[in-house]
Design a protein around this nucleic acid. Sequence first.
DNA 1: TATTGTTATACTCTATAACTATA
DNA 2: TATAGTTATAGAGTATAACAATA
Lengths: 149, 149
Amino acid sequence: MDGKSDLKNPLEKRLGYQLRRASVLMMAALTDRLADLALKPVEASILILIQANPAITQTEIGRVLAIQRANMVPLVAGLMERKLIGRQAADGRSHALHLTPAGRLLTAKAETAMLDHENRFFGEFSAGDRERLLAQLNEIRTGKGDSDA
Amino acid sequence: MDGKSDLKNPLEKRLGYQLRRASVLMMAALTDRLADLALKPVEASILILIQANPAITQTEIGRVLAIQRANMVPLVAGLMERKLIGRQAADGRSHALHLTPAGRLLTAKAETAMLDHENRFFGEFSAGDRERLLAQLNEIRTGKGDSDA
DNA sequence: TATTGTTATACTCTATAACTATA
DNA sequence: TATAGTTATAGAGTATAACAATA
């Protein structure tokens, strides 16, 4: 009941390929899900990071999320303009970021959306499978990936 | 022995986030690895797909790899110019693609590079863990992800 | 000298619309 | 009417270089 084609795709056996395809699919779904809140995934991530780390600076956020300083500027400016976050001078050159009340509210909604989103994709997975998958993905990041320094 | 910071990252508990970070890291590593062959990951994927499916057309490749028809044009043109692939008229509007001898040689090298690359990241994983991870990633793609039609 | 925030800029990847020639 | 290949183009996302102010 498919009949779409008889094409072979040897890449389906490649972990890196499947990793990327799954990631792209989930990112697209999350983008749709967060569009209701007028947030992009990266913006939601920034809000969550500020919530977890009061007085974090935008350069620090960039370091955690692997975003260049230069590219943080319009992101922070956008959240400031929407009055979701505020800044206070930390020292003369850096600014401590915090969530506004509106930002706290929206961050809570974003977190709910992200959990729903995750359950949509992993709802059939057992808790053990989720934990193992999470640990394995984390291993990829923290394991052999450190040889690019 | 780290001292890098005391920042919390709640996103590390999110499967979608870890999936993306792992994917980006592996893609960057693969890009480096294939640079020796003057191939981008997408070009290597196209070569492998042509090898596995003689007489495939570029639109079909795009369908398999989720690449727009329009974006296939410069990719195929580049591989043609390097004489890694050739084309023959299939019907009046489509062309059957095939690997040239040079293309076959380079594709073999690319496959070796991709296997090495995969072992670099998953070498510590047991065969069972690899299989399970592959199956889980495939489930993400073929499971709940089909509701965007 | 190093770091923060910033501007400007370029490059890649991806998406859309429209055209042609074929089916 | 639908499809393959193509062109042109626009929009993200990401990267680098340079600068001013501050540490």
